[in-house]
Design a protein around this nucleic acid. Structure first.
Length: 415
DNA sequence: AATCCACAGGAAGCCCGGGAAC
DNA sequence: GTTCCCGGGCTTCCTGTGGATT
C-alpha cells in the first residue's frame, strides 16, 4: 500500500480561485473603474509624446491605494503601444522612490534601464560622481532617441529624505538632451510635499497637478466585483462579503489596495479551512492577519539600535505608562544599553530614531507643548495588541533578550 | 509681558564601507 | 597604491518654540 503524498489532499480540493493574480493589488486590470477623469487628463497631456513634443511635467496627488500608480502605468502602457504602432519611440521608466531613495540611485536606475546590451557598460551602484551618471543618462537617452516618460512614484519620500537636487536635474534634462525629449511625472501621497521644493523646481514640476480622490465604499465595491468576477469561482462569495471588505477599506481612507488584499486573503482563509463559501468571519481573520503580516517583518528587520528604542517604548507601556515623552524613552533606553553593555547613542540620534519609527508606523509621535514643562513628543506604540512584538525582536536579535527579562521581572525599578 | 522648560530639528562634519579612476 | 566619490550612521553644536507659569 502506498503512502499518500501530502499534496494529494490539497490538490484534490476544489479551489475557490479561478485566477488569484487578478486579486493582487499590483495586477493591472484591463479596465480601471471610476478613474476615467484622471485617465483622460493624463492621456490628454501625454499624447504630445506621440507627436514628438514634450508633454508637461505632472504631479499626481492622492492617498495610498487611490489608483495613482495603477492609472499611470495603465496610461503609459497604452502610450507605448500607440508609439510602437506609429513608429515613435516612447519609453516609460517607473521608479519607486521608496526602494530607490537617493539621487544617485535613481539616476543609476534610470540609466541602467536604458542599457543597450553589449554596447553600454552598467553604471556601478557606487563610485561615479553624480554628474557623470547624469551625463551618461543624457547620452543614452539621445542615443535611443525618443520621448521618455520618467515616473517617480512616492516622490515625497525621496524629497523628504534626499532633498530636491534630483528633481532639479531631471526637470532640467530637456536643456541637455539634443534629440530626445523627457517629461517627469511625480506621484505623491503627500499633498504638501512641494512645500519642501525650491521654487524653480516647484514651478517646473507642477505644470499640471492632478488630484486623486479616495474611493468611496460604493466605488470600492465596483472594483472588487469586477475583479472577483474574473478571479474567483462563481458563487463562492457569501452575502455581504464584498460590502464588508469595501467598508473596512473605506475606513482606511478608501484604499483599494487594502480592499483587494482583504478579499484575496479572506478567500485564502476560507479555502484553507476547507469551506466552500467565503463569509464575514473569514474577512475578520484576514484583517487581523494583514495587520500583523505588515508589521512583523518591519519589526524583525529593524537595526539593533532601533529595536532597542522600540523596546524601551514597549517596556514603558508595559508598566502602564501612556503618552511617553522623549526624555523618558531615552532614560529607559540608556538603562537598557547599560544592561547589555552597549554604549548608548546620543539623545539627538534617538530623537531621529523615534521619528523613523513613527514613519514606519510602529509608533505615533506627536510633538506637543506642555507650556512651562517644555516641548516634547508624546509617544505611543501603534503595534496591535495581538501581535507579540517582543518575541519577534528577541528572535531576530538574541542579544536583546536580557533587557526584557530584566525589565519584566523588575518592573517597579523602571516605573 | 517676560521667562523658561524640554525638547525639536537643522547644519556641519566625522568615520566607515563600498567602489571607480588614475 | 592613492585619491576621488556616495551614502549611512552618528555626534556636536546650535537655534527655535508653544504655552504654563511667574
Amino acid at each position: 500500500m502506498s503512502i499518500p503524498n501530502i499534496f494529494d489532499d490539497l490538490l484534490s480540493r476544489k479551489s475557490l480561485f479561478k485566477n488569484k493574480e487578478i486579486l493582487r493589488h499590483d495586477h493591472s486590470p484591463r479596465r480601471l473603474p471610476h478613474r476615467d477623469e484622471e485617465i483622460n487628463k493624463i492621456s490628454y497631456n501625454l499624447v504630445e509624446a506621440l507627436y514628438g513634443h514634450i508633454p508637461s511635467n505632472m504631479t499626481l496627488y492622492g492617498v495610498t491605494g487611490a489608483g495613482k500608480t495603477a492609472v499611470t502605468s495603465y496610461v503609459c502602457q497604452h502610450l507605448e503601444e500607440k508609439g510602437r504602432e506609429k513608429g515613435r519611440n516612447v519609453e516609460t521608466i517607473m521608479v519607486n522612490c521608496r526602494q530607490i531613495d537617493t539621487q544617485y540611485r535613481v539616476l543609476t536606475f534610470i540609466g541602467n534601464s536604458l542599457l543597450e546590451e553589449h554596447e553600454d557598460e552598467e553604471i556601478p551602484f557606487t563610485g561615479w560622481p553624480t554628474d557623470r551618471v547624469m551625463k551618461e543618462l543624457v547620452k543614452r537617452m539621445d542615443k535611443r532617441s525618443g520621448v521618455f516618460i520618467i515616473v517617480l512614484d512616492e516622490i515625497d519620500h525621496l524629497v523628504r529624505k534626499a532633498g530636491d537636487d534630483l528633481l532639479y536635474n531631471l526637470t532640467n534634462i530637456n536643456s541637455m538632451l539634443k534629440v530626445s525629449r523627457a517629461c517627469v511625472i511625480g506621484i505623491s501621497n503627500d499633498l504638501k510635499f512641494t512645500d519642501f521644493l525650491d521654487p524653480r523646481v516647484k514651478s517646473r514640476l507642477g505644470q499640471l497637478d492632478i488630484l486623486f480622490k479616495p474611493y468611496d465604499a460604493q466605488q470600492l465595491q465596483d472594483i472588487l466585483r469586477q475583479r472577483s468576477d474574473a478571479a474567483l469561482v462563481e458563487g463562492v462569495l457569501g452575502a455581504g462579503v464584498i460590502e464588508l471588505c469595501s467598508a473596512l477599506a473605506a475606513q482606511e481612507h478608501g484604499d483599494a489596495r487594502c480592499a483587494l488584499d482583504l478579499l484575496r486573503i479572506s478567500t485564502e482563509k476560507a479555502e484553507f479551512a476547507g469551506d466552500e463559501i467565503v463569509l464575514s468571519h473569514h474577512v475578520r481573520t484576514a484583517q487581523h492577519q494583514i495587520e500583523s503580516d505588515q508589521i512583523a517583518p518591519v519589526i524583525s528587520s529593524l537595526p539593533t539600535q532601533q529595536k532597542l528604542v522600540l523596546a524601551s517604548i514597549l517596556i514603558n507601556e508595559h508598566t502602564g505608562l501612556k503618552n511617553i515623552q522623549t526624555g523618558e524613552v531615552y532614560e529607559i533606553y540608556r538603562q537598557a544599553c547599560k544592561h547589555i553593555r552597549q554604549s548608548p547613542l546620543t539623545q539627538r540620534r534617538i530623537s531621529g530614531i523615534i521619528q523613523n519609527l513613527d514613519m514606519l508606523g510602529l509608533i505615533t509621535a506627536r510633538t506637543i507643548s506642555r507650556g512651562r514643562y517644555g516641548r516634547t513628543k508624546e509617544i505611543t506604540s501603534s503595534i496591535p495588541k495581538n501581535l507579540e512584538a517582543i518575541p519577534l525582536m528577541v528572535e531576530s536579535e538574541e542579544d536583546l533578550k536580557p533587557i526584557f527579562e530584566h525589565s519584566y521581572n523588575h518592573q517597579s525599578r523602571l516605573a
